[in-house]
Design a protein around this nucleic acid. Structure first.
Lengths: 201, 201
DNA sequence: GTCTATAAGATGATAGAC
DNA sequence: GTCTATCATCTTATAGAC
């Protein structure tokens, strides 16, 4: 990492090497609060407080609350990209797909409390009129594409449908796990899903 | 049905035979608005307007907004009960399970816009602190139980896990259908699910 | 029972000092 | 760049007339 100026997504102040930039602090704070409470129940006052930033100062970094939510979405997209890239180390497509599914099992306890971080966000924003014209901006788009790639490598012609099937199993399991406040539901469904992955030629 | 006084859930004004009671109008209005916008983005002013009732009058029927949301949940529970009972006409367990799955396909277009009426409600309320101590109050509880009953009739020992698997497929398909704004995703996943139902001995 | 008026508080957003 | 003070609006909820 050099000290030279780097291109960053959107307007961003000079990055501090010592600590997270205040902008990033605000995005992180908003991301966790939105996950725990949802977008609309989360106020800018709460976001600012958790980020240790004065309320009015939020508007120096984000023109509106919507802009802050957009920044959270970008942050989630970056995390997804990193995570998927990390699975590349696995040797076989099956191992990579199981690693993906295991990601949710690792956070099963949290999922039982607040739901899937991606699923609940997508569900809430999906009702927003602003979101109505953004079909391929889904947080799941890169994940479905990545699953489809693995399945094609397995020689499956129906890779697209199977990709949706795999993600639907995970998301459905996460939703029911949250609804029943039982992490075991997600764990057991993932076990079933793993057997299903093995059954794919 | 007699004219005698009947026990009803909660305080309820005299039921008018000619038209829906104002209370019911408010519940219906709240239910549709909550489905379209979510609980927290829906204001009492909107609910009152759609129900053609003055804003302040809402508080005659419901002490707080939470009480109105509770009434919506009760209404949903009643709808679920009715719907499941309607499937009883089908001869075989498989036919009954397919009828259940078909229920979502019938509203696939709406699901692509606003998500599953039950799934999105559960997802949003699941983040609510008030809901934290209500594991078996899930809107999905009666549905899972009903599916389990059908599967037991098929002689399946693993009926509980399979019940969650079936509902997870549907809910996952609905969530992805909404996320991608594509009803076809839910339709295709249901097709796969129907074959899966047939494969159950 | 039904409605109007309004209180009380929260929230997104702005102006301007430092 | 950072912070304080504050506005304007929205939203839940109440009081009280009819």
């Amino acid at each position: 990492m050099t000290n030279s100026v780097r291109a960053t997504l959107g307007a961003m102040p000079n990055v501090q090497a010592r600590a997270l930039s205040k902008r990033q602090q605000l995005v992180d704070s908003a991301q966790s609060l939105i996950y725990e409470q949802g977008v609309h129940r989360t106020t800018l006052a709460e976001v600012a407080e958790r980020a240790d930033v004065p309320v009015g100062n939020v508007y120096y970094y984000f023109k509106t609350k919507d802009d802050l939510v957009d920044a959270v979405l970008e942050s989630r997209a970056a995390q997804i990209h990193e995570t998927l890239e990390g699975f590349g180390k696995r040797r076989t497509p099956q191992a990579r797909l199981k690693a993906l599914a295991h990601g949710w099992v690792e956070i099963a306890e949290t999922v039982a409390q607040f739901g899937c971080p991606l699923g609940t966000l997508s569900s809430e924003l999906g009702k927003h009129p602003d979101d109505m014209a953004a079909p391929d901006a889904s947080v799941f788009q890169p994940i479905v594409d990545w699953i489809e790639t693995q399945l094609r490598e397995l020689g499956r012609r129906d890779a697209r449908d199977l990709a949706f099937e795999l993600l639907a199993r995970i998301q459905g399991g996460a939703l029911l796990g949250q609804s029943f406040r039982d992490p075991d539901i997600l764990v057991r469904q993932t076990r079933i899903t793993n057997r299903w992955i093995d059954s794919l030629s």
